[in-house]
Write a protein that binds this DNA or RNA. Structure first.
Length: 567
RNA sequence: UGGGGCGUGGCCAAGUGGUAAGGCGACGGACUCUGGAUCCGUUAUUCGGUGGUUCGAAUCCAUCCGCCCCAGCCA
């Protein structure tokens, strides 16, 4: 008995489905689908659609199909089919035995086209693309009937058959629906159903010389699969009358198309054209570059499917165009990774610490908990010795107000270790600190003292002789404006590319347990952020990608105008 | 100046005639062997504007304004 259940408000699509369930429309059945075109990699925007469609099927005890909308062989490739399947699966979706391709239906679609010709609802048109544009009219003026609009059924049948046989060159003829050239909805002005394309299809090979257009293929594919609710984005709202026309004119099972608004994300681009450009022209290192908003990029970056799903859920669904805040996505990964990820210590920009009163050659193996959020995560042993590395940024000769970390004479705690105090900074000829000479309090073993002395700062560290060298890749936003398309007139979004989106730290020092990783392992580097082992890792030389930083209230405070300090 | 949509705090978003949920962010504070996490406060007298209907409107009506999409033989 739910008593104080939070009322989770449904979205408008689920409201519509609720009505259909109540009325018994579709036999109180729910069946959705995700219909990607295999002409690019999936990105976070697709995740929203997948999450919506799959989530609905799951919530209503219905079914979900994965269907490739592969009606244009000139743009589609098997590589994309493979990557899409991998990404959809990674998101936690199980399409069971329902993997389909629009190309599976080419025969049926063709038969239906013949049916439409026979019923006088379709005709072969000899206008070329240019001429067709002329005849189409404009937004404010009606179009004119094609001179081929009134061919006899026999002639249409003959011509269409010869199109199918490959008798005519590309672009010379089309099969068009005979609807209304004066319709205010341009999609209804005798839209093309089939075009001639002498192209090899990634699945049907050279069987076809004509290929159906999206508008002719999509609804019928939905119909064949028994889809109940065909969910798509807003720009297809204008196509719904055509979707309905095809199904009704054919007299076949008629699913309901429902449109929702896609969301943009700040500091990134999601258009297929731009994503392809970034990859092909090497602005990034491939589709799975951790800076890319692609599913494969997010995966390599260290995002979890759970975080991506949570993000989609938090944003919700609506019909209003919007731009989601990237911080919202980051909040979702932080929340997930905080609970599930082991804490480790890695020094990104090391500076050596020598503890002068610590016995030379001695090594203590300290017990350290792996995750304070999860006792079940257990503990590990960390070596502590006379020479250590700490973060160079954790030392300031002139400590600003509010500084908790190391500076001359100030005592700090080494996490899980001892209290230490720095008395001398050794500098090189350039005046850079190269070594910090410190002393420790032997009574502070484990991080606390008998006198219960408080220290404000706790630093992460690594034993110099035990540390493993690591490469750490720090990422910032790929673009330095919330809206990358915010450019002066005539400008290009690429002008907003962030030159600092990738910083490689080749000299990081990691605790010894991280020596050998395969790629994909996720960690919290204490006090820094969440990181994910990259597949580039080699035994003894791990490589990490920074998924997201930890929240940094000190850094934020220090960077405030009024709080700014030297250093 | 054709058609189709949309406008609720900085960003998402509930709300469907009864007196503005929630999340993110931001700002304070508590706590802390991660300046992390956690916790506790604060953050829309107002729903694109203006009129109207009503005891009562973000919700109904009118009108105006703004934004998005459509003239591929792309999806």
């Amino acid at each position: 008995m739910p008593t104080d259940e939070t009322v989770v408000s449904k979205d408008f699509i689920r409201d519509l489905i609720d009505e259909d369930m109540r009325s018994g429309r579709f036999g109180a059945r729910v069946h959705t689908r995700f219909p990607p075109e295999p002409n690019g990699y999936l990105h976070i925007g697709h995740a929203m659609s997948i999450n919506l469609n799959y989530g609905i099927a799951r919530d209503y005890g219905g079914k979900f199909n994965l269907r490739f909308d592969d009606t244009n062989p000139t743009k589609e490739e098997q590589e994309y089919v493979d990557s899409i399947m991998a990404d959809v699966r990674w998101l936690g979706v199980d399409w069971e035995d329902r993997l389909f391709f629009a190309s599976d239906y080419f025969d049926q679609l063709c038969e239906w086209a013949i049916q439409l010709i026979k019923t006088g609802n379709a005709y072969v048109c000899d206008l070329n693309a240019d001429e067709m544009r002329q005849y189409r009219g404009t937004l404010t003026e009606p179009g004119r009937d094609s001179p081929y609009r009134n061919r006899t059924i026999e002639e249409n049948l003959d011509l269409f058959e010869r199109m199918r046989q490959g008798e005519f060159p590309d672009g010379t003829r089309t099969l068009r629906a005979k609807i209304d050239m004066a319709s205010p909805n341009l999609n209804m002005r005798d839209p093309v159903m089939y075009r001639i394309l002498h192209a090899t299809h990634h699945r049907t090979g050279d069987k076809w010389h004509i290929y159906p257009m999206y508008d002719y293929a999509h609804g019928q594919s939905d119909s064949i699969e028994g889809i109940t609710h065909s969910i798509c984005t807003l720009e297809f709202e204008d196509h719904r009358p055509l979707y309905d026309w095809c199904l009704d004119t054919l007299g076949i099972y008629h699913p309901q198309q429902i449109e929702f608004a896609r969301k943009a994300l700040t500091y990134t681009v999601l258009s297929k054209r731009k994503l392809i450009e970034l990859v092909k022209n090497n602005y990034v290192n491939g589709w799975d570059d951790p800076r890319m908003p692609t599913i494969s990029g997010l995966r390599r970056r260290g995002y979890t499917p759970e975080a991506v799903r949570e993000f989609c859920a938090r944003l919700g669904v609506s019909k209003a165009n919007s731009i989601a805040d990237f911080q919202q996505l980051e909040a979702c990964v932080r929340e997930d990774l905080n609970k599930h990820t082991a804490r480790v210590m890695v020094v990104l920009k090391p500076v050596k610490v020598v503890i002068e009163n610590y016995p030379e050659g001695e090594v203590e193996w300290i017990d350290a908990d792996n995750n304070p959020e999860d006792p079940a995560a257990g503990t590990r042993k960390l070596p502590f010795s006379r020479e250590l590395y700490i973060e160079a940024d954790d030392y300031r000769e002139d400590a600003p107000k509010g500084w908790f970390r190391m500076s001359p004479g100030r005592e700090v705690r080494l996490k899980h270790g001892y209290f230490i105090k720095c008395h001398t900074a050794v500098k090189n000829a350039q005046g850079e600190v190269v070594e910090l000479r410190c002393t420790y309090d032997p009574a502070s073993a484990g991080g606390s003292t008998p006198d219960n002395r408080k220290v404000q700062g706790t630093l992460h560290w690594v034993s110099a002789t035990h540390a493993v060298d690591a490469e750490v890749r720090l990422y910032e936003q790929l673009f330095n404006k919330p809206n990358p398309d915010d450019v002066p007139p005539g400008g290009d979004y690429k002008a907003n590319l962030n030159p600092n989106s990738l910083t490689v730290l080749a000299g990081a020092k990691a605790e010894p347990g991280l020596a050998t990783l395969n790629g994909g392992e996720r960690f919290q580097f204490m006090r820094q952020g969440y990181f994910c082992a990259d597949p580039d890792s080699r035994p003894g030389k791990p490589v990490f990608n920074r998924t997201v930083t930890l929240k940094d209230t000190w850094g934020k405070a220090e960077n405030k105008p009024q709080g700014k300090k030297s250093g």
